[in-house]
Simulated scan of single mutants.
Amino acid sequence: MTAQSAQTRITTDTLDLMRIPGLSGHEDRVRRALRSKLEAMGIESSADRLGNLVAHFPGQGPKVMLFTHMDQLGFIVRRIEADGLIRLERLGGVPERALAAQEVLICVGEGRDVPGVIANKCHHATTPEEKYKVLPYAELYVDTGMCSAEEVEAAGIRIGTPVVYAPHASTLAHGRIMGTSVDDRAGCAVLLEVARQLKARESGPPVDLAFTVLEEFNLRGAQPLAQQLLPDIAIQIDLALATDTPDMGARGDVTLGGGPGMGLYSFHGRGTLNGVIPHPAMVHLMEESAAAEGLPLQRSAQVGVLTDLSYVQLVGAGVASIDLCFPMRHSHSARELCDARDLAALAQLLSAALARITPDFDLDRDAYT
Rank of each mutant, 00 (worst) to 15 (best):
P21T: 13
D83M: 00
T212V: 00
L354D: 00
F211D: 02
G84K: 06
R31N: 03
L23G: 05
R176D: 00
R176S: 01
V152S: 03
L209F: 10
T243K: 01
M328S: 04
L23Y: 05
K37S: 10
K131Q: 15
E287P: 05
L297F: 14
A317C: 10
E44N: 14
P205K: 00
S300M: 13
S203H: 08
R356E: 12
N218A: 13
A281Q: 01
T144H: 04
D362W: 03
T243E: 04
G258K: 11
L88I: 15
A340S: 15
Q298T: 11
G145A: 00
K63M: 05
G59E: 06
L105V: 12
A352W: 03
R356T: 07
S351D: 08
V194K: 00
P278L: 08
Q4W: 12
A353V: 02
E27L: 12
Q302E: 12
Y368H: 02
E150G: 04
L99W: 07
V312H: 01
I76D: 03
A291Y: 04
L349W: 10
S331L: 11
D208H: 15
L23N: 06
P136Q: 11
T180E: 08
V319K: 04
G160S: 02
S351R: 12
E129H: 10
G59Y: 03
D143R: 10
K131T: 12
E215F: 01
A290H: 12
L295H: 07
K133Y: 12
V117C: 10
Y132G: 05
A367P: 02
G175Y: 00
V117L: 14
G22S: 08
P62V: 07
V77T: 08
F57Q: 02
P206V: 12
A334G: 09
E153H: 12
L140Q: 15
A125K: 12
T171L: 06
Q102S: 03
H26Q: 09
T358I: 05
D113A: 10
K63N: 03
T68W: 04
A169H: 13
S289C: 09
V319I: 02
A291M: 01
Q298I: 07
L306E: 02
Q60N: 13
V163M: 03
I43S: 11
G187K: 13
H284S: 13
A40N: 11
I10T: 08
L363E: 08
A355W: 04
A169W: 13
A290Y: 11
D183H: 15
L34K: 09
P167E: 14
V182C: 05
T11L: 06
R335D: 12
R35P: 04
I233A: 06
V30N: 01
R90M: 07
S148C: 07
D143C: 09
A98Y: 02
D253L: 09
G175E: 02
D366T: 14
I277K: 09
K121C: 04
E39A: 12
D71A: 14
K121G: 10
I159F: 02
A195W: 09
L343C: 07
A138D: 14
V276N: 01
M41G: 07
S321V: 13
L297G: 10
T126Q: 09
V77S: 06
L219E: 15
V64R: 05
Q4E: 15
S148Q: 05
P205Y: 04
V134D: 00
L73D: 08
A33D: 05
R158P: 13
D16W: 03
R78N: 06
Q72K: 05
I233S: 08
H69Y: 01
A138Q: 13
A334Q: 02
Q228P: 01
V190G: 05
S266P: 03
A320Q: 01
T126K: 08
